[in-house]
Structure formats: structure tokens, C-alpha cells
Write a protein that binds this DNA or RNA. Structure first.
Lengths: 336, 336
DNA sequence: GTTTTTTCTTAAAACGCTTGCATTTTTACT
DNA sequence: AGTAAAAATGCAAGCGTTTTAAGAAAAAAC
């Protein structure tokens, strides 16, 4: 008797039960005002009684909107990116979107691959974080009619919308600080210089401010590595033999490594060696001495990116292609 | 002339163009072997020429599989969870799944809410990370026919599958260490005790080992707070006035706070005060002295959870409801 | 009480794909 | 060449919604 196969209740089940058409049910579900209050109530009652849940996939197919956006990130495990991601998710859910999060390891192949599966899944928009925006990627972006914004990175060709800070100026400020403390030999400790944010912008800022202060640019003071803590930690010997008395570092984990490497080797920070970093993540407060840092509103960059994306998804015209958020500098124990 | 509205190319476009039925195209797209090599080639050629991309939403609707799993986490920004998430995502993509990532802040309301939207989106499975599995949540889990596994947390009632370590034993080991160093007054620094993992398991381990060593359990040595770095940092005065000579801490960020709070106040670690933490995240290596820690394979817990989930999604019967991964202990500078 | 308007409803056609079943084509054997 | 079995293919009915064009009902206007 009660052997019925627990059928999934669909919109048509509800429609029949309530004695109205599917269209009407759809309307009340979507809050369309063109429904007489009494019928709305009737339908709502049935929905409640049957515990009906609209199938988002079917909605997606019919409406061509998935209320889902894709987020491509090199590695959530890195605080920099997880902070952005958090900002993104928070405003996303504020606007009833969900996030498909995919890690790319900054690997070009994976980026392309993941981009395509996201598009296949019909995401309404995409937020891309990456170190290096290749031409191929840019081409794929263009081909997809899906809105895309870059969070925390910049497109040299300025073809795709993005939100970030002014890296050149920020670095100028940070390094200028170091110069004012009397440092003549300031290391530039960087992730891959092939990443434009490093090789293009930050390095430029570094050079600018050096030039402005009549300090010769010495390529031997530029240290190219990856973003790992450990890479910073083992850098000290090289730093020391280059006679660096201070370092500007492009990433917090990396900077923590540099700092600890120096101290573990007996150097006094900031007396013998100063270090400033770039992202002002939690980490800067956790190490000792605490790290002076460029401050950039990580969470906000994510949040603003997502907000920007919602506008694009609504086809609201935006005046600018690029949003530049304010940066700052916070002095902590790692500098004089 | 060339004013045609760039129609989206669908499976039927391809079918017509290739002179076969949609079914056949579908078969080649899905790698179904029942297709003559020559037709397969023909279809593939057309797919390539038209640059056809299957619409995953439509596939989802028709096949009732979305190849998407939901991941609910308190906060990606926390290394503990982002590590799990990374493990999850890696094996997920290995199995061609994507991840919808949602932050709950451990907030009950949000957890329920997010769970429901994930179900509405017809995810094939869910991985849940949370501090506290309430009855309501458990009920909702049950009602959903979707497979769910708990990653890095445990269900006291053992109703839902989970993967984690043996917290009781792990804590026993860690604290036993401290006892062996002669500590009689060992603080138990915890997040909310209402989280079973703290109040139930870890605390139990703490009590067990105390009892075993004939040390009286002193409630004044139990410090309940939240998981934030800052909360640990400000704890020192309380710790000091309780005459604690060592602390076992349930979270790395929290532990880093405790450690720094102590040192900033002039305490010598580990001479005057020892601290051991629980998660062996990157953080433990970044602070000075480095933190001794229970080691649990965070990434693996995520990875194994996801692997477990894939099995459930394939309806492969699993013998156990619970997977206990091995833990360990690593001695670093924060203990003698 | 009609006629207009306006407000609600409905029927049915999409949306783009999968899949069970029937049908046709091939292959393998006599 | 003829037939049974196996391999390919096609048909068409879903999957659960949205949405448009049109009709019905209710409200407003005359």
C-alpha cells in the first residue's frame, strides 16, 4: 500500500495538487507579483506541505542562468588567495550566487582546462586570479561571452576587467622607506619575474625609487624564486653575500621565510637587516618581529571583484575597466 | 548577409551537420564504445569544426548527475580548512568533479541554509566541515538522499560517515609528553567546548592522561575561547596567574597567539613555558620557536574524504562508516 | 449592464541533453 | 546465399523549469 516509490515532487506535482498551472507555481516560487494573493497563499501552502524544492539545474537550463560563478585560483592554501576567495564568497552569497572554486597551481594547462569546464557548466561569470595572463588565456576569455574579472592581478594589455592596487606606487613607497633608513643595498625578493606583477610592475617601482634617490640598480640584488616559505628561509646566505641590508619581498609567506632565515642565522632584525613585505596577511602579525608591510585590502579586493562581476552579469555598463583600490603601508618591527 | 545571430551550437546542430542522430553524437561525446570508428571520426570532426561544447547543465538535467560536489567549511581563510579543501579539490578534479565551496562561519543558520542551496543545485555529494554537528543538521542530512561525509570532524552519534584522526589518543600522547618534562600544571587551551571535538574528545584525552599520571584535573586550567590568533595572544596573563607551565592548544593560529603572547611578555619558551599545538599546519614552522605539534595529515583528510565520497556516489558499499587516519607528533622548539 | 482595461492564468513550446527500446546494418557461420 | 547474432544507429520520451502568446476573469469605466 504505502509502497509508492517516494517520487520526487516537482513543479507539476505542486501544480496539480494546488489545482493551478505550472506557470503559476513558477511565478510564486520566483516571487513574480502577477499572482493573486489568495492563489499565492494556496500554492505556498502546498509547497510547504509537499516540501517542494525547485530543481536549480532545471531552472538553470530553462532560464539560462545558474547563479553560480567560477573562481580560479592558484592555491587556496595560500592566505593571499584564500582571503580574496573569502571576500568573493561573501558578496557572492549576498547576491545569491554560489562559487565553484578551482585550484590551478598557476599552471597554464590547468587554467585553460578549468576555464573550459567552468564554461561548460554555464557559470554566469568568472573571477580569475593568476600570476600570469597569457595570450591564449586572454583569447579564451574573449571567446567566452561570459563576464570575467581579474582579482588581485592585472592585465598588461588591459583587455580584461580587473581590480587591484597600484603596485608600482606601492612598492615605491615601501622601498623609499627603506632608503630613508639609510639602506643602500636593498634586495628585491620576488616570485617568478615572468609574472608581470613582479617583473613588470613591482620591479618597476623598485627601479623608479632607486633612480629617484640616485642609487644604482644592481641586478645582483634581485632574487627570483617562488612563493614558498621555505624558499625565503634558505635565501639568507645569498642575501648576505650580496651585502644586502634590507629586503623588499613580494609575498608574506616568502617574507616570513626571509625574516626567519636571517634571524636563525643570527642577523638582528631590524638592526642589521630590515624586511618589508607586500600583502599584510595575518602572517605579518604572527612572526617576530612583526613584518612591516604594504597594506592592500585583500578581502576587499575579492569583495569588490565580485561586486564588479555582478554588475557585468547584469549588463550594467561600467565606466572603467579597472578598479584601483587604495593601498597603504604599516610599520611594524621588521623595519626601523 | 552575415547577420546571422551567432547561434549557440547544440548537440542537434552537430547531429544534423554530421548526418547522424543526436543519440550518436551523445555517444561519442560520452565515450560510449558502441559507435563505429568511422562515424566517430566523422562526428568528432564536426564537433571540432563547430567548436561544440556540451552544456553541462543540460547534461545534468538529463542524466541526473552534475559532477559537482558541495563543500561546506567554516572559513577558507583558516589554514586548517583550506588545507582540507585543497585535498578535496585535488582528488575531486582527479575524478572529474568540481567543488562548490561555501563558507558558513560555523554558524548554524548558514550551515542549514547553504546545505539547502547545495541540494537545490543537485550536487552529487557533500563534504561537510564543521565544529558542531547539531541534531537538526543531522536530520537534514538524513532527509537528503545525497551522500555526505564529514571531513576532519566527528559525529558523536556516528550516524554520518566521516574521516578524521583519533583525537583522544592524539591528545593523550601530546600531553603525556608535557608531563614527562615535569609539568604538573598544563593548560588546556581550547575553542568552544561546545564543539564536541574539544569538549568531548580532546578534553577527554587530556583528562585521561592526567589521571593516568595521578595529576588532579583542575578546571581552572581549562581555557575556553575561540580559534582566533588574537585570542591566544591575549591569554597570557590568565595563563600566568593560573601558574601554568605548559599549554596544550587545539588550533595552530590560536597556539601561535599563545606562544607569542607568552614571549612578548618575557616568558622563555620552552624553558619557562612549553606549548604544543594540534594541526601541524605551515604556521608551526613559521613562528619562533617552532611549534611542537600533533601531526595530522590535513591534506590527506580532505583527499580521503573526497575519495570516500566518490565511492558513496557510486554506491559502492563501504565496510566502515568512519575512517581513522594516522596521527603523529613532531617535536620542535616550543617543547623541551 | 456593457464595454474597456487591467490583472491573472494557462497551455505548450522551449532549454540541450541522455537513454531505453526499436530498427537497421554488419559480421559470423552454415 | 541465407540466417542468426552482434554491433550501430535512430526515435522519441523524458529531465524539471521558464516564458511567451493568448485566453479568462476581475475590476474599472461608461
Amino acid at each position: 500500500m504505502d509502497s509508492r516509490e517516494e517520487k520526487t515532487v516537482t513543479i507539476s506535482t505542486v501544480a496539480k495538487e494546488a489545482g493551478v498551472s505550472m506557470a503559476t507555481v513558477s511565478r510564486v516560487v520566483n516571487g513574480n507579483p502577477n499572482v493573486k494573493p489568495t492563489t499565492r497563499k494556496k500554492v505556498l501552502e502546498v509547497i510547504d506541505r509537499l516540501d517542494y524544492r525547485p530543481n536549480a539545474v532545471a531552472q538553470g537550463l530553462a532560464s539560462k542562468k545558474t547563479t553560480t560563478v567560477g573562481v580560479i585560483t592558484p592555491d587556496v592554501t595560500n592566505v593571499y588567495f584564500s582571503s580574496l576567495a573569502r571576500g568573493i564568497d561573501d558578496v557572492a552569497s549576498m547576491y545569491k550566487y554560489n562559487i565553484i572554486l578551482a585550484n590551478s597551481d598557476g599552471n597554464h594547462q590547468k587554467e585553460i582546462q578549468v576555464l573550459n569546464t567552468l564554461l561548460a557548466k554555464q557559470v554566469d561569470g568568472i573571477i580569475f586570479m593568476g600570476h600570469n595572463l597569457t595570450d591564449e588565456l586572454r583569447a579564451q576569455f574573449k571567446r567566452a561571452k561570459t563576464p570575467i574579472v581579474l582579482a588581485g592581478s592585472v592585465d598588461q594589455k588591459n583587455e580584461v576587467e580587473s581590480v587591484h592596487i597600484n603596485y608600482v606606487e606601492a612598492v615605491e613607497g615601501a622601498v623609499s622607506n627603506l632608503i630613508n633608513h639609510g639602506n643602500k643595498r636593498i634586495a628585491f625578493v620576488s616570485g617568478p619575474l615572468s609574472d608581470p606583477i613582479n617583473g613588470e610592475y613591482r620591479l618597476q617601482g623598485y627601479k623608479n625609487i632607486l633612480a629617484k634617490n640616485n642609487i644604482d640598480y644592481d641586478p645582483n640584488l634581485v632574487f627570483e624564486t617562488d612563493y614558498r616559505y621555505r624558499s625565503g628561509e634558505v635565501l639568507w646566505p645569498a642575501l648576505a653575500s650580496a651585502h644586502a641590508t634590507a629586503a623588499f619581498v613580494v609575498d608574506d609567506e616568502l617574507a616570513a621565510g626571509v625574516l626567519n632565515g636571517a634571524r636563525d642565522a643570527g642577523a638582528k632584525v631590524p638592526e642589521d637587516f630590515e624586511v618589508v613585505t607586500s600583502n599584510n596577511s595575518k602572517l605579518t602579525e604572527i612572526v617576530r618581529p612583526k613584518l612591516s608591510s604594504i597594506t592592500q585590502p585583500l578581502y576587499d579586493i575579492g569583495a569588490v571583484s565580485m561586486r564588479f562581476l555582478t554588475k557585468m552579469m547584469n549588463k550594467e555598463e561600467s565606466p572603467q575597466k579597472t578598479i584601483e583600490l587604495p593601498y597603504g603601508f604599516i610599520k611594524r618591527g621588521s623595519t626601523k
